[in-house]
Amino acid sequence: MVQFTLNGRRVSFEGSGSRRLLDVLREDFRATGTKEGCGEGECGACSVLIDGDVVDSCLVAVGQVEGRDVLTIEGLSSPLQQAFIEHGAAQCGICTPGMLLAAHVLLQRTTRPSADDVREALAGNLCRCTGYTKIIEAVLSCGT
């Protein structure tokens, strides 16, 4: 059994610890905001935060989150979300949850990031719709 915190709630999972965290989140906890784009840690659509660090949940065995704090898009509450809407940073939306979580980490650690900081922080999250321009603008608008 794996026990962890998911979006602030204590949860437990009874299945095999070798299953991908991505699958457990989507199939067992119905947290389908976490998307599978490639299954090999290239696209970042499955990004979640573990103890505040952004990771690809397709690369994490669920057993590895024992006792840890997992945040998915369903648990995020950030001004970034409104900024993404206003700046046109979400188009098809499939990369958006992962993108928001990666941007959230950046803003937690860097209050006033530069455009280059944003590019680096989001380099693990592929977007095919926006050319990243409006995503970068949206994140910069949330710097304090």
Binding site: R26, A31, T32, G33, T34, K35, E36, T72, I73, E74, L76, L80, Q81, Q82, F84, I85, A90, G93, I94, T96, P97, L100
Partner: peptide, 14 residues
């Protein structure tokens, strides 16, 4: 916009 920034938007596999 709102459904896409909250994870509520349901794609096929969701």
């Amino acid at each position: 916009g709102a459904s896409k920034v909250t994870g509520e938007a349901r794609y096929t596999d969701d």
